[in-house]
Design a protein around this nucleic acid. Structure first.
Length: 461
RNA sequence: UCCCUUGUAGCUCAGUCGGUAGAGCGGAUGACUGUUAAUCAUUAGGUCGGCGGUUCAAGUCCGUCCGAGGGAGCCA
């Protein structure tokens, strides 16, 4: 019988034959026995393999069984004589599948997260990155489970886009042109008609606009895919390539949007607590003390909901000196978000109805003519984790907002058609998947919650 | 992009007033009651991030470039 370590550790098939396949985490050598801790990634715990030196294992073979080596062990599952595990494997056959020479970079001892980032191809073999991978996978599943259970359709919006002004940030250009010999028009501009698509194209910064078209036909949809921003930002919460979840709901106003967003976050957090208990316990004790309780509090309590104007009142009343003085009409700064989430409310805060000048053109204008139906969800430590809004569903108002933003309504003809034919109030939001993982795990840098981070000046591995 | 910090052995770091380089861990070798990041002993391992300057002498002081970390801005 051959099983994953996770199942073996739970097994009650004592004295039955068993096969373990995995990588050696540590070897403890004694006069008569050798202990191998084997991990296969199925869980954080290792299975202990006991090798009795009397049973004819050669010295050469045991010497090769070093930290990092891959092995197949055939033996018997037995109750452990040691105190720290219930079961262990009494080894009868040991096969070293792949040796790990002495320059194997991962020690038994703890490494800094920065060093692990330099060996991103080996870091999934560590406790912390293995745990991140499992949590990430579980969270992805929970995302789909939540929306599928609610009848949302998963829509694959394009990665390559010709919408040259989605308004969400700097874009990566996609081209097959020879950059050493770029075709030019008569007036010296780049001739994109000779490019692959016959026009200028980029990697998507958001699937929202395409998502809206499907929501305005299928009612409730969501996207979950890679997103690209070419911003020159160097922080612990930004990536050039990240994964974003963007639901879009027809016949849905801002209130319904907030309800779904809050329910969604709680659902995913609960799923992780319920299904990744061992990994979460690790994060709780070694990465950020108290993160499990923090998550439980998020799940059990309602998010605070305030308008931007109310937020400004809190900030203006605050007895403290600001680096950036809060002022109506100016966006919330990091220090403001931290104050609201960490000091005033001590939990996630949904801020709504921002001044139209600091928000995107597609957001629904309020009757006051000054604010839009936007909602950002801010969380302690990280700041914005969700950005969303009710969309402008009035053709004329949308046209005006596009013009006011200095853009040409003609470029958005298909987007405006949604308002021309059978328009409907609709809302949606975007959630940065890696930020959610940061939030749950308590890990400090976003580059450690994605397998191979892409950021300014870094596309290694 | 801006501000601050930082770069010394494979890893984590110490190195005083400028005077010829150190520890712990890891590795190797050996020992050892069934160990739990095992323990004990021995041992190898360095262009002190790169380049330039000051000085009799630079890991140490100055300039510059590169990398890393944190904060800010931009956002998810």
């Amino acid at each position: 019988m051959e099983e994953r370590v996770k199942d073996i550790l739970q097994s009650t098939n004592i004295d039955q034959p068993i096969v373990v396949k995995g990588w050696i985490r540590t070897k403890r050598d004694s006069k008569n026995v050798v202990f191998l801790a084997i991990n296969d990634g199925s869980c954080m715990s290792n299975i202990q393999v006991v090798i009795d030196k009397e049973k004819g294992f050669s010295t050469e073979l045991l010497a090769k069984a070093s930290t990092g080596a891959s092995v197949v062990v055939k033996g018997q599952l037995v109750e452990s004589l040691g105190g720290q595990q219930k079961v262990e494997v009494l080894g009868e056959e040991l096969e070293i599948v792949g040796e790990a020479p002495e320059d194997y970079p991962l020690q038994k001892k703890r490494h800094t997260i920065e060093f692990l980032r330099e060996i991103a191809h080996l870091r999934p073999r560590t406790n912390i990155i293995g745990a991140v991978a499992r949590v990430r996978s579980a969270a992805s599943f929970a995302v789909h489970k939540f929306f599928q259970e609610k009848g949302f359709l998963y829509v694959h919006t394009p990665i390559i886009t010709a919408s040259d002004c989605e308004g969400a940030g700097e874009m990566f250009q996609v081209t097959t042109m020879d950059l050493n010999n770029v075709p030019k028009t008569e007036d010296g501009a780049v001739d994109f008609t000779q490019d692959f698509f016959g026009k200028q194209t980029s990697l998507t910064v958001s699937g929202q606009l395409s998502g809206e078209t499907y929501a305005c036909a299928l009612s409730n949809i969501y996207t979950f895919g890679p997103t690209f921003r070419a911003e020159n930002s160097n922080t612990t919460r930004h990536l050039a390539e990240f994964w974003m979840i963007e639901p879009e709901m027809a016949f849905c106003h801002l209130e319904g949007n907030m309800d779904i967003a809050e329910e969604f976050i709680k659902y995913v957090l609960k799923y992780i607590l319920d299904n990744c208990a061992e990994d979460m316990a690790f994060f709780d004790s070694f990465v950020q003390k108290g993160t499990i309780d923090t998550m439980k509090n998020v799940i059990e309590n309602e998010f605070a909901r305030i308008t931007y104007t109310e937020a400004m009142e809190y900030l203006e009343k605050a007895d403290r000196t600001w680096e950036y003085l809060p002022k109506w009409g100016v966006d919330l700064q990091s220090e403001h978000e931290k104050y609201l989430t960490e000091e005033i409310f001590k939990k996630p805060v949904i801020v709504t109805d921002y001044p139209k000048e600091i928000k995107a053109f597609y957001m629904k204008l309020n009757d006051d003519g000054k604010t839009v139906r936007a909602m950002d969800i801010l969380v302690p430590r990280l700041g914005e984790i969700i950005g969303g809004s009710e969309r402008e569903s009035d053709y004329g108002k949308l046209e005006q907002r596009i013009k006011d933003s200095g853009m040409d309504p003609k470029d958005y003809w298909w987007y405006m058609d949604l308002r021309k034919y059978g328009t409907v109030p609709h809302s949606g939001f975007g959630l940065g998947f890696e930020r959610l993982i940061l939030y749950v795990t308590g890990i400090a840098n976003i580059r450690d919650v994605i397998p191979y981070p892409r950021s300014v000046n870094n596309a290694n591995f």
